[in-house]
Design a protein around this nucleic acid. Structure first.
Lengths: 205, 205
DNA sequence: ACCCTAACTTAACGCTGTTAAGTTTTGGAG
DNA sequence: CTCCAAAACTTAACAGCGTTAAGTTAGGGT
């Protein structure tokens, strides 16, 4: 069964070529200019060839973002070494903001755009190395175990989601309102720091 | 100068007819299905007629959202009566979330979609009855004046922006991730309450 | 009565995602 | 080796989008 495997591999290869082309357009010219035709142009295929490898544009983008975000979650392995849960939390929060601002297109597609029912790839869920939510949740479990968390905060999922919301708000607002003139904006670093600080105060006894 | 004024009035009338049509499509079928052609259909005009009244689709949507958001800001006049700044703040936060969730299309266009340079209508800026940010800022000034705010928090704009970010995060995540299966979501009310609670804790001595 | 301009329409351009139908390539069975 | 079927791809086209150019109609000002 030699050729069969080779074909499988080739198929996977062109899939990643498509994803790479999309990612580059994504990064250099923004989501708006990621079109099937332009992706095709880059890999010197006809636009319709892509449909042989991806159901439609949306699932192509979803797969791209999923993949890159999983990659990002790996960077948490370093942060996971920080012994103090509080320090670990604030480091994770700042790393998350950094990722969002460095990859605004990814972030927009993943967390700022409503998705139709959209079945997801659930593999990796719960694994802190692939699932940033699971990582956050773990930190909070540790924090609770250390006895330093407010006693009222019993529902760890609720706490995780609220904290995620807050940090997400910083990124999301920055991405969406970058050129706004209505408000006299402070630097994103200052806002991030204050939000992280307020999260700590909200969690600890 | 009778006819001149009449024409002016008629022009304004059809402008609002366009905006109303857009708003209805907006609300009933989502932003995606708001197209120039469908708006035109509703008011029984040709698609190009709209361009006589609005520069392009984007400014049409921007004007619609600006207008409705200003209207919303009016609801703060009631909340402004609440004497205690802390209570006022949490009431405002919850009202803001409510608006966002009741008008997700508006919210998306206004705060979840990056805008090109896009010159804005700055009239009304700073007036708490039209400018929700100014309202928030005023509450925080009052809170500071009451002496109950942490002394480290000197930059009121920084604080305002951070708090706005946090609340925005709740709305934004809810709108974007409504059908997500990855996370075992708690209710939006619970998340809102916890975030508001943590904001209070982060602000007060 | 004339004209000019505001307000509109029709037709078209160039772009998009996507599909239908046709073509080439290629591995496996007789 | 031959033949066939399926995989991998292309060309052509459709329907829709925002937008513009050119043409038409109506109505007040001179």
């Amino acid at each position: 069964m030699g050729p069969r495997e080779r074909r499988e591999r080739e198929r996977e290869e062109i899939r990643t070529r498509i994803l790479d082309a999309a990612r580059e357009l994504f990064a250099t010219e923004g989501v708006e200019s990621v079109t099937m035709r332009r992706i095709a142009e880059r890999i010197e295929y006809s636009p319709t060839a892509i449909y042989f490898h991806f159901r439609d544009k949306e699932s192509l983008l979803a797969e791209l973002c999923d993949c890159d975000f999983r990659n990002f979650a790996h960077t948490f392995t370093v942060i996971a070494q920080i012994p103090d849960p509080v320090e670990r939390l604030s480091a994770a929060g700042k790393a998350y903001v950094e990722f969002g601002l460095k990859n605004p297109s990814h972030y927009r597609v993943m967390f700022m755009t409503p998705k139709p029912p959209h079945e997801q790839d659930m593999s990796g869920k719960g694994n802190p190395e692939e699932d940033a939510y699971a990582f956050l949740r773990n930190v909070l479990v540790d924090l609770q175990a250390s006895g330093r968390m407010r006693d009222e905060l019993t529902d760890i999922d609720l706490v995780s989601q609220s904290i995620w919301s807050m940090i997400h708000g910083v990124i999301s607002l920055e991405i969406a309102k970058c050129n706004d003139q209505w408000v006299d904006w402070r630097t994103i670093e200052a806002r991030t720091d204050l939000v992280v600080d307020m999260i700590e105060r909200g969690l600890l006894k």
